[in-house]
Design a protein around this nucleic acid. Structure first.
Lengths: 228, 228
DNA sequence: CATCAGATTATGTCTAGACATAATAATCTG
DNA sequence: CAGATTATTATGTCTAGACATAATCTGATG
């Protein structure tokens, strides 16, 4: 072994490993050579091989366990990374003009939030046509300064980014039938299939905000997997 | 300064950096100290700091540019990783019995695939109730051995995992109104909001398969962000 | 035979130093 | 002063060696 075509950089090694997997040289389930062996074959330091394999493990292509070694994942668990953009950003990236209108703002409570909550409903426009309806609840005990904001000029979406930070969140996507209210705001028929994104964010243990985004019919979210 | 509680491991450093960001010690947009400075402060090697910062940059929390330094991202672009499980696996993880039935299998062509294609329609059940309708097109020029498979016992979903590998893919999620046919198979009303996942996979330049999964009403996909 | 303690081993991570690279800042030149 | 060239600098990556950690394997023991 040697004469190895001098792979330069851990990304090159990652590519070569991927090639062998796709070429079925290392079929799913098989244990691949150890890091030291690969390092010698590729003519590089073990740390370099480690970097490459670790990245592939994170991507779900490999499964690694101490002592047991590294195996090609049986079920290449496709992990698709969906980037959740700012609404304004998403609209402007489509080449449309961003518009915003506050629909309602009132205090109350919410099942998922402790203490008083601020309820804000607003509509985001792309070139004067409704794009997404934002129904949000903000915890006033965690973010009291929200009380002083009218949300008339700036959306809660952006205001929170500037005034609060979160440590974790939870998102679900689903398809819902448009209620009469949602349909009216989005300019759709009642009962139309609506792509809905529910998000909940926490700062440590404290729940900050719960939001439901109802997108205009035809909306789709796109993502790429394995994109080299 | 100093007395720094000996941060051990790059993950600890990552945590500390995250803490400073959340605590607004390093507000969004601000350039944080260079790697050498941090390494000295934390009492570790620069490579360790590098590992931590690189991971955070990959997560979208930091923006790094050579010479310019490292800045806290202005828009914490939430990157949610959605794991796309095998259908069987997803059903069994819900504690339901998996069932499968082939509905149709015929040769033809497909707009996104070059050459002849095999069209397979099948239904996946959870405890005898329909769960998802799979409408798939397989390129016969890329995967000719698909011709010899009846897909009567095994779903195309699983068969492809065992018999083909992909290098890249493209997924879109959307909400669609159930067509009469879809509604009938899923036991839903025509026009009901259906969560739809369209997937396209390639092996290099060759398009392998295009599939549309129409989920039973009420289905939702869930993901977590920032989960430590 | 079943169980537990110790030897083995592959991965996980750190270190200290080095060179590469890209982008900014400074300087020189017409 | 504008434009081109060079110096500087922060990140990107590699190396060689070391120790840590967790599993597995081995063998001894009851």
């Amino acid at each position: 072994m040697s004469a190895a075509p001098q792979f330069t950089g851990w990304q090159a090694i990652q590519a070569e490993v991927l090639r062998r997997i796709h070429a079925r040289e290392w079929p799913p389930g098989q244990t691949i050579p150890g890091e030291v062996a690969l390092a010698q074959e590729f003519g590089c330091a073990r740390a370099t091989v480690n970097r490459a394999l670790q990245a592939l493990a994170e991507a779900g292509v490999l499964e690694r366990r101490r002592k047991a070694g590294t195996r090609v994942a049986l079920h290449p668990v496709s992990k698709a990374t969906v980037t959740i953009p700012l609404i304004r950003q998403e609209i402007e990236e489509r080449g449309a003009a961003y518009g915003y209108r506050l629909l309602r703002r009132q205090e109350g409570t919410h099942a998922m939030l402790t203490g008083p909550a601020l309820h804000v409903t607003a509509l985001h426009f792309a070139d004067d046509t409704p794009f997404v309806l934002e129904a949000r609840h903000i915890s006033l005990s965690v973010i009291p300064q929200a009380r002083n904001e009218t949300f008339h000029e700036i959306s809660a979406n952006e205001w929170l980014l500037r005034n609060a930070s979160y440590t974790s969140g939870d998102i679900t996507f689903s398809a819902q039938a448009a209620s009469a209210e949602v349909a009216q705001h989005l300019g759709a028929e009642t009962g139309a299939p609506i792509f809905v994104m529910d998000r909940m964010t926490w700062d440590g243990e404290a729940a900050i905000t719960a939001v439901r985004l109802s997108y205009v019919p035809g909306y789709r979210i796109r993502t790429v997997i394995g994109g080299s």
